[in-house]
């Protein structure tokens, strides 16, 4: 494994939710480092804080206490607009529930990040088409989400995550809503992207899916429980 640099470094990451008088501790001090070109699986029981961690890494959420460095830049503490810019340019996020715009075509859904990046319509279209080709959906560009299968929808979501050539592709249980055959296909897509050099961090419940990753981080009750790197796939 080449370690040409730390892409993500978090330390003492804490996230609390206030529910009236009660405080829910979703993360209780997470320290970890993720390097370029890694393929990391995050596991752990339900409620252990996996999604919370992913959302903070994905700049959709901010930590209560702690530091988060992305690409050598401290993210914790930057303003709302800067977070939006990072989400737009550094991060691709794939959700369990796809989160596609229901009325827009696959092509338009993939174009979306480029619209907010200020890319001209012509280049947008070309980049989005290329991203759809990368996930094997060149023939479904004009379909709307309800005209696509679950696996195809998730491919569109992956293409959308890729289209801005992000530093890191984050996926929170991307196969959680899919049957096993389709899951295997989607995992194949992630494997392929990793082989092309894409850094991937993926939350999953399933051991055989985690087994594809070189490194598995396990969370337990808001803390890192184990962090194992396996040689040879």
């Amino acid at each position: 494994m080449t370690r040409d640099g730390s892409l993500i470094r978090v330390s003492g990451l804490t996230r609390e939710y206030r529910m009236g008088a009660e405080t829910v501790h979703a993360l209780r001090g997470v320290d970890m480092e993720i390097y370029r070109n890694e393929y990391v699986a995050i596991m752990g029981p339900s409620g252990s804080g996996k999604s919370t961690l992913m959302n903070i890494i994905g700049c959709l959420d901010t930590c209560t206490v702690g530091e988060y460095w992305l690409n050598g830049v401290e993210v914790s503490g930057v303003g709302d607009d800067e977070l939006a810019r990072i989400r737009n340019q550094e991060i691709g996020f794939v959700f369990q529930t796809f989160n596609l715009l229901p009325r827009a075509t696959a092509l338009h859904n993939v174009e979306l990040p480029l619209i907010y990046a200020g890319v001209s319509a012509k280049i947008r279209r070309r980049c989005a088409a290329q991203a759809l080709e990368r996930v094997g959906l060149a023939d479904r560009m004009q379909h709307r989400p309800n005209e696509l299968s679950g696996g195809q929808r998730q491919r569109v979501a992956i293409a959308r995550g890729l289209v801005n050539e992000p530093s890191i592709l984050l996926a929170d249980e991307p196969t959680g809503n899919l049957d096993s055959t389709t899951s295997a296909e989607i995992m194949g897509v992630f494997d392929g992207l990793h082989q092309q050099g894409q850094t991937v961090v993926m939350v999953t419940h399933e051991r055989d899916i985690a087994a594809r990753a070189r490194r598995v981080i396990t969370l337990l009750d808001g803390r890192v429980h184990s962090d194992t790197v396996r040689e040879a796939a």
Partner: peptide
Amino acid sequence: GIRKSVGARRTD
């Protein structure tokens, strides 16, 4: 939420 998650700012 979707638009924000892919980088829409408040002003957008």
